[in-house]
Write a protein that binds this DNA or RNA. Structure first.
Lengths: 115, 115
DNA sequence: TCATTATATAAGCATATACTTATATAAAAA
DNA sequence: TTTTTATATAAGTATATGCTTATATAATGA
């Protein structure tokens, strides 16, 4: 079981504001159990690539996600080392599981895997 | 123990956006263990009365808080019947306890009590 | 009834936000 | 080495947000 980290009001509200957007909350839900790259988010969320990249940048700047380049692709994952991770994990238990969307992506042959 | 309610992405992001503001998050933290009236928030948060009332209206419109008039005063409390309550309760465990601020208010003779 | 107190609402405004389009960069492939 | 693919960034813009000031409403008390 994860430890319950207490954040300052300032830090907590910053995290919650970032989660308080449908696009970013879905991104975080997708990252709960998976690594994903930008083009997968673009496909699943049906949004422009710059729009997705700009959301990811906000999440990265705040330390909520990590990025790792693998060839052409930049893979994003939750930053489990960040103080916000405990709060985020609990929040994500209150939204619908997003795995189905990745399964559908896989079935349509658009899932990216570099392992 | 409270049941873990799952909200839609849309509903969850709306709740998180409302919590993603320092003023509103502090208000919710104060309401975690107490009923409070508008003038108490004004005093504790050192903000104008209209600013506080506008934040409370957003929280009320979204169903996160309830209001009850007692004489001159309008008392606000968490809406425990709302679907968002389970999420909100967990979020509030990740911020510092706000009770000290109410104790200080009481000691300065400015706490309102109608019971 | 009229004044006072607590709160709500309306209008205005400066800033923040989330897109868009255009362009830059970085890795791989031809 | 040039092209292609994936991503990042910059600039512009429409809308949302959170305050301000001014005013309205609602309950109490003189």
């Amino acid at each position: 079981m994860l430890e319950k980290t207490v954040l300052s009001i300032k830090d907590a509200s910053q995290v919650l504001k970032l989660l308080g957007d449908q696009t970013r909350l879905t991104i975080m839900g997708l990252l709960k159990n998976n690594e994903c790259c930008v083009c997968e988010f673009v496909e699943i969320l049906d949004m422009s690539q710059p729009a997705i990249s700009q959301h990811l940048r906000k999440l990265r700047d705040a330390g909520l996600v990590k990025e790792q380049r693998k060839g052409h692709w930049m893979f994003y994952s939750l930053n489990q080392e960040d103080d916000s991770f405990s709060l985020i994990s609990e929040v994500l238990e209150h939204i619908p599981d997003q795995r189905e969307k990745l399964i559908q992506l896989e079935q349509s042959g658009k899932r990216i895997c570099c392992d």
